[in-house]
Amino acid sequence: MRDAPLLEVRDLNAWYGESHVLHGVDLDIREGETVTLLGRNGAGKTTTLRAIMGILRRREGVIRLRGQDLLKLPLHKVAQAGLGYVPEERGIFASLNVAENLMLPPKVAESGMSVEEIYRLFPNLHERRTSQGTKLSGGEQQMLAIARVLRTGAKILLLDEPTEGLAPVIVQRIGDVLVALKERGMTILLVEQNFRFARKVADRFYLMEDGRMVGSFPGPELDAHMDQLHEVLGV
């Protein structure tokens, strides 16, 4: 099946305690594709990523990676199956230096970038490799959070709002990195509020509202969907 999606999410429901937060989410990502989830704060984008990763445990539905059912796996097996997670809060460890942060996630495949390649892509991280992880600037921490999962050989990157709170020049830099990763054939699931940033890399958009998917269209059709976009994003 050439067109079978790499990651397939069907009728995903999830709960935080008693509150039902995802309602039948469907999502497909094919190999090498960059897919962007757009939606307002609280629409369920981050929750969708956390449910796919298995950090949010109370969920029902289907999550398959190359046909492998991820729903039943314990949390640490999901990364081993090939998902690389870059959390919204970045998750840089204060008690580890930059190099230790970079080396922390165990390799899941041999296809990952070498440390030399990563330092070429992010020269700042090399310069500051002995600094405490959280002493880096916000932009550098974001680069480190991305670099960290590139080393592991993950098949799919789950990126949660990588541009949030960063200066335009850094946002530009992160955009360049994503383009470079895309050219290397990386598959990316990107959560963004900034669709101007996302349009540079996204092959496809999903729109979320109140824990539901409310729309989906290919990247080049972004302009044709501006009205719907403005309505859903409230911009």
Binding site: I55, V78, A79, Y85, L104, R148
Partner: peptide, 25 residues
């Protein structure tokens, strides 16, 4: 050591370390 780095990181945020594929249990 690497084991120590897992330990320090998991002390800060065990869920994230496990989400990176470390068998935290």
């Amino acid at each position: 050591t690497r084991l120590g780095a897992y330990l320090r990181a998991a002390t800060e945020n065990a869920t994230l370390v496990q989400a990176f594929g470390v068998n935290v249990p």
